[in-house]
Every structure is written in C-alpha cells, then in structure tokens.
Design a protein around this nucleic acid. Structure first.
Lengths: 235, 235
DNA sequence: CCGCTTCCTTAACACAACTTTAACGCCGTT
DNA sequence: AACGGCGTTAAAGTTGTGTTAAGGAAGCGG
C-alpha cells in the first residue's frame, strides 16, 4: 500500500491541526473534515484507509457515525476523545470502533496505533482478494505485484528494461506513446537520444510476447512512437 | 465462534486472578500462565483466540514474546502493563501488539477491547484466511512455530539469517522481492548497502534447499531482487 | 579463562546477464 | 534512384551475480 489515506474528523481546530501536522510528518495523505455528515460523505467518496474520529462533534453523535460506517465497511476507526469515562469508551468500542485514545494524547502513541491499524489493512488487502494488480490483454498477462509476465499462461523472462517497457505500454493500452516519452520513462535520463536502443528492445520484446502467437500486439507509428493494441479475446 | 479461548500471561497473582474472574464472568474459556516460555508453549499447543500479555515477566522480555509469536501467527495480543511510557507502548505496538492497556485498568474497558479483538478474529475466520503456521511448497516445508525447515521431509539446518530470509521468501511466494526490501526485513538496519552479504546468503540457501533436488526454487531478477516460485507438486 | 564452534562479513574473481553500439537490409516516401 | 526511418542480428562493453575462501566476532563448553 503506498501512501495511506487518513480521514480526520475533528471540529476543534487546534487538535485538528496537531493531528494534521503529525500525519504530514509521516507522509500520510489526509483529508480533514469538521462534521459527522462530512465524515460520512468523505469516507464514502474518498475511501480512506483509516478514520480518526473525535466523538464530540456538533452535528452527529460519534457513536452514530461509527454504527453508520460499520453498516457498509470495516474501515479501521480510531477514536480520539476528551471523554475518559469507561462507559463512553465501551460504547464506542462496542459500536465498532477499533481503538480509543483519550485527550490529551501523545502524538507518538497515535502514530503507533495508526501503524497497528495500517498493518491490519495491509494484511487484509494482501490476503483478501489476490491479484488486484494484474493486467490482461489477450494472451498477455502482467502481474505487477509479483513483477512478472506471462504469455498464454507461460511465464516469460524479461530483463529490467524490457519489463519496464512492457509495463509502460500496458499502462497505456491503446494510446500511442512517443519515442521521447518512452525514453524518459524507461531510461530515466533524458539527454541522450537513445532511439537505437529503444528499437532493439522493441524487437526483443515483440519476439518474446508476439512470436508464440501470430498476433501482433505492438503497433509502430512511423516517426512518432509505439502503441499496444487492446485485444478482445472473447469469441 | 463459540466460547473463545483466551490466554492470560501474567506473573502477578492478584492481577491474574482479577482478569481470570473477569473473563469467567463472561463465560470465556481461559488458560493462565506465569512465564513467557509457558506463554509460547500454550499459544502453540492450545491455539487461543486472544492473548492478554503482561510486559513485565520474569523470564522473557514481553516484546520478544510478541515478535516471536508474530513469526507464525496473527493472534491478537492485548498488552497489559504497568509501564505507561510512550516509548514502551510504541515499542510493543510496533513489535506486533494489537492494543495496550496501562495498569490500573478498568475491567470493563478490558472486556470491551477483548470484544474488539474477537470481532476481528471472527471476521477473519469467516472470510477465509486461517492463520497457518506451516508452509509447504513442493518438497520444501517450513514449520514457523517450531522454527525449522525441511526438504523432502529431511530437516535442514539454517543459520538465523538464512531462516529469516527463507521465511521472507516463503511469505511472499510468487512475488519478486527487491534487494532493498529484503535487506530491510532481514537485516533490520537500513543504512549499509549490504548486497554482497545478501548474495552469499542466497548462494548458501540455494545450496541447502535446491541441491537435494534438481529443481530451482529461487529465481533471481537481475538488478531487482529475488523470488521464490510456487511449485505445484501434484502429478 | 581459554579454545572451540558457529555464524557473519568482506574480498576476490570468474562468469553470466544485461545494455549499448554498429552494421545491414527492408520499405515507404520524395 | 536516393533518402530516412525502422527491424533485425551480431558483437563489444558494462554491469550485476554466483561462488569460494579467509578473517573476525559472538556464543558455548570445558
């Protein structure tokens, strides 16, 4: 999971800023809202990985937000509240919250508890539904997570550059990519006009992914660049 | 899940009794042990649903128990400790604990947090993903709980680093792991670009787990990293 | 306290893989 | 017919990897 997205629900500005800055220091992406209504909207539309929720909001009761959210998702919810009564904690936790911190809290502890929640999210993602990040186009298959490619379910061996090139084409199926764009993306350096290399890599790539079939996958646009065509394999 | 089993690890008798009575009142089944060693044994043999762990044990450091347990299972661990320092909390949570309560704690809060953990266990059980503690891939077998590995049912001796490396690869069968990732996971330290060591370990690992067979298990991706391939041994 | 073993690191070197460069034939266009 | 862009092949050059062996650190038992 790259750069988790965290939803902060807190109406008290100083606290919100504190949390916000804390998250920022860890490079987490974030959304901050002040009301329960906005929290529900944001959690629906932005699909955050974690919600940090203050119980004392102006419009909605915090526990209601938890319950409502739980009707459609298992989004980890960390409560941050000024109420330290057992009864409040228990109510929130039983409503579906995952953790409960009492103000004033240590930002380092908050971060640690966020990491606990993230660990769980990540575990679920990895072991939940496998293969979200696979690309398929006709007989070609790329498993980005695993970092390898298949043709007709046979694994094919690709060098680093070949693999990067293939990924770039796959990520832009149907689009023509100019020579310059490809060179910039695959060979990080921008300066040397290394078109010759590109040509030989195209040749080897084509040999590896097209030869087992008669089918042509990569189209060349003279003077412009290349393009991977989308193949509809039903029928 | 009927009647969850909870493992209590606590050497202070009054506290242990308090927890024990609390759990009893909820009809939870329980095991109580006083030492870290006993905790590990019990968690292996009895397969509890939750562990409640005191950090200040006589024989083993609590954090070590967490780390050890985490090498083979995702058993929810709730820490109960008299230490209230941020540093202690963070260390335990980052080591793999799921929650942290500071003594003196409210029994009602403990129960609520147990319910949170149980909710998660139940969810996991319902949605597949059992916490398997033995890995098999072709002729290779790893018993994470016992901490040893077998090839064709012959036990093989591995050094600590070799074992960690093997586990890391096994936990990500089919995926390419970059050099950096491996170095970060196996050699905790991040700084020295210790690729040479990694190479010699790969060599010895391969010699130990591949040589008894003609089969190649670990694939190298030049410039990227390594990958353990899944072997389908039916047929 | 010493010697042993085991483990980890480092260095060296041969070898394999990867990348680039060069050369040449093909095809379309002018 | 000549030119330029492209595909293809082969070879040279560069980088990364496998492997071995030696040196040093840490743990163990006597």
């Amino acid at each position: 999971m790259n750069n988790p997205l965290i939803l902060i629900v807190e109406d008290d500005k100083p606290v919100r800023n504190l949390i916000s800055l804390t998250l920022e220091s860890q490079q987490y992406r974030q959304i901050a809202v002040e009301t329960g209504g906005a929290a529900i909207l944001a959690s629906l539309s932005q699909k955050p990985d974690i919600m940090i929720l203050d119980l004392g909001l102006p419009d909605l009761d915090g526990v209601e937000i938890i319950k409502k959210t739980r009707t459609w998702s298992n989004l980890p919810i960390i409560i941050v509240s000024s109420r330290s009564d057992d009864a409040d904690k228990i109510e929130a936790l039983d409503a579906g919250a995952d953790d409960y911190l009492t103000k004033p809290f240590s930002v380092d502890e908050l971060l640690a508890r966020i990491r606990v929640a993230l660990r769980r999210v990540q575990f679920m993602q990895e072991h939940g539904q496998p293969g979200v990040s696979v690309f398929e186009n006709g007989p070609l298959k790329i498993d980005f997570a695993a970092g390898c490619a298949f043709v007709s379910n046979e694994e094919i061996h690709l060098s680093p550059i070949e693999y990067k090139l293939l990924c770039l084409l796959a990520h832009n199926v149907g689009k023509v990519l100019t020579h310059n764009l490809i060179l910039k993306e695959v060979w990080q350096n921008t300066l040397p006009n290394d078109t010759p290399s590109l040509r030989v890599y195209m040749a080897t790539l084509r040999r590896k992914i097209e030869s087992p079939l008669g089918q042509k996958l990569i189209q060349t646009h003279v003077g412009i660049g290349y393009r991977m065509m989308r193949i509809n394999d039903e029928q």
